[in-house]
Design a protein around this nucleic acid. Sequence first.
DNA 1: CTCCCCCTTCGAGCGCGCTCGAAGTCAAAC
DNA 2: GTTTGACTTCGAGCGCGCTCGAAGGGGGAG
Lengths: 127, 127
Amino acid sequence: MEFTIAEVAEQTGLTAHTLRYYERAGLLDPPERDWNGHRRYSEQDVGMLRLLTRLRATGMPIAGMRRYADLCRVGPATFDERRELLEEHRRQVLERIAGLQSDLALIEYKISVYGAPVAGVPDLARP
Amino acid sequence: MEFTIAEVAEQTGLTAHTLRYYERAGLLDPPERDWNGHRRYSEQDVGMLRLLTRLRATGMPIAGMRRYADLCRVGPATFDERRELLEEHRRQVLERIAGLQSDLALIEYKISVYGAPVAGVPDLARP
DNA sequence: CTCCCCCTTCGAGCGCGCTCGAAGTCAAAC
DNA sequence: GTTTGACTTCGAGCGCGCTCGAAGGGGGAG
């Protein structure tokens, strides 16, 4: 099963422009072309894109994704390195989540200072 | 107790450049000046900056922080509005965390596919 | 007086990740 | 035959959030 760029855009939530950009950026192997030069993405391509979008969504920079893609191009010899790259990224995401939760604590404190909407509360704590 | 720009930079992790930028951007009321024109930040200022840095860290855009700051300038009449703004932001952060966790799921699956480093495993699943 | 350091303003520049538009090709629909 | 529409390449532009450098001032130490 193969897909046009529009179909892949639909499936991944990226735009056609962005898909071409990812290809230029070395994140995705240039897909096959059909007889008139249009890209035909394989299911493998789409799978790779699904991973890439998750990596992006979790804050991996383009350069990091390219390193991963480069390792993929090399072949199975890089399995361990790829795993390490992903594990390192996982660590960073977990740290990030922990940071967000701790930042939330101050925000929730602030919310509590503003108080639930109760009538007749004077300007005691000027936050 | 008041602070120089360098002290505040130290305390907040922002640079002096960024502090001036935040002021220009309307996130922070222009602090007092000492006799020779240097900024003297109050503890209130620093408290506001602490909140602002948490809002930034959780992804609030500058424009959102400015709306909050503008509400603060208006006075206690805007307590409810401020609370709502923060609550809306909290919702977004929680969504964000949930998204990160679900994105992590695919990444961890991928890690598992690459397998723990075990000697002698052949190239079965080409991920 | 000189030197050094920290501060000031102002405006330009940067890095990232897209995002878009121009200009062209091709095939199918009308 | 013309129009439509999806695709192609290429390179420029944008929005955000800083980041930096130039140019200058003022005060304290030696």
